[in-house]
Design a binder for these strands. Structure first.
Length: 331
DNA sequence: CCAATTTGACCGGG
DNA sequence: CCCGGTCAAATTGG
């Protein structure tokens, strides 16, 4: 059977979807004060910040799904049906969940609870909770992996409830971010096994993670440098310098890029580079990788161009472990 | 001992 | 009052 081929197709389309959204956003960011590229209809310019956030979410979600697929689960269907903050934005939406994933809707602002360092702001009122962004995915579990649940997830969740739902065969379970108390992170997730196809699970996410998900809190204004971390970074840098080559098919248009976008760590000030290429750091998906590369020298010899890349860690970045795969889309 | 899960109670919206 | 969502005490498990 051609199951793997089918999975690959899904994976590819997911990545393409994410890339398209990324490029859309890239174009938008790049054309803030310059003429629009010809391949963009003028109607898609001048996005609102909500639209940008939606695009960002699509990007992140696509990569998450793609990685889920690589982990053995099958994402059957998903849509970013963002519920909108109706109270604060009553005109933007007539109160219905958009049925088409292509329709872009505003997304709520939920910035006020990201206060990590200081006061513990518990008690998010139920009204405010309702205004958190919400989206769903459907995931099919693969038989050989853990037979219960698609609970392969980037984040760590803590189950806090389970309920029998009215017309449903299977109970619904409720999860919240493990770091709700410690880091004031209000992301939640519901898991509902499908009635008709027990291998399909409906996942409903509510709220974005504001936690650093397992990353030890950054050393405060501590003057003693974290030598372990620095050594590790140097090792990784050396490793990258010796082992990484960037190949392009049509020559490189940009002379620099950065790829701090390792889902689910949103980096709103990320810069996708200015050329035709987009570099995506897949990382090992457990730590944010926040470093940039500068193409300095072209040591290419003929058919397969190879560029020297100088990497530099963002000093505010966390360490990253594992291997990296860099995809270059050169269209 | 500590942290995660279980499970009935509780609560608020419709 | 019903239903879905959350809380929290008890239990489990490492």
């Amino acid at each position: 059977m051609d199951m793997s081929n089918w999975e690959q197709k899904n994976l590819l389309s997911e990545l393409v979807h994410g890339l398209k959204a990324a490029k859309h956003l890239q174009a938008e960011l790049g054309t803030a004060s310059s003429p629009p590229p010809p391949w963009l209809s003028s109607s898609s310019l001048c996005l609102t910040t909500e639209m940008r956030e939606t695009l960002l979410h699509q990007i992140v979600s696509s990569y998450e799904k793609a990685i889920l697929m690589l982990n053995g689960s099958n994402v059957v269907h998903s849509q970013t049906a963002e519920m909108v903050n109706l109270a604060a934005n009553p005109v933007a939406n007539n109160g219905k969940v958009p049925e088409s994933p292509t329709s872009i809707n505003g997304s709520p602002r939920s910035e006020e609870f990201i206060d990590v360092g200081g006061s513990k702001d518990y008690n998010l009122s139920s009204k405010k909770r309702k205004m958190l962004p919400k989206w769903t995915e459907q995931v099919r579990i693969s038989p050989e992996r853990g037979l219960e649940g698609p609970h392969e997830d980037v984040f760590s969740w803590r189950k806090y409830g389970q309920k029998d739902i009215l017309g449903a065969k299977y109970p619904r379970s409720y999860y919240r971010c493990t770091f709700r108390n410690t880091q004031n992170c209000w992301a939640t997730k519901q898991v509902q096994r499908s009635d008709d196809d027990p291998t399909i699970f409906d996942l409903t996410y509510k709220g974005k993670h504001t936690c650093s998900q397992g990353i030890p809190p950054r050393d405060k204004p501590d003057t003693t440098p974290n030598t372990t971390l620095i050594n590790y970074q140097n090792d990784l840098l050396a490793n990258l310098r010796t082992n990484l080559s960037v190949r392009t098919t049509n020559g490189i248009e940009s002379d620099g890029f950065s790829f701090p976008v390792t889902p689910p760590f949103y980096s709103y000030e990320s810069d996708f580079g200015n050329g035709g290429g987009t570099f995506c750091d897949m990382g090992n998906y457990s730590r944010p990788s926040d470093f940039t590369g500068l193409i300095s020298t072209n040591t290419s010899t003929g058919s397969s161009p190879i560029f020297d890349v100088d990497f530099q860690f963002d000093p505010t970045a966390e360490i990253n472990t594992g291997l990296h795969t860099f995809l270059h889309d050169s269209v």
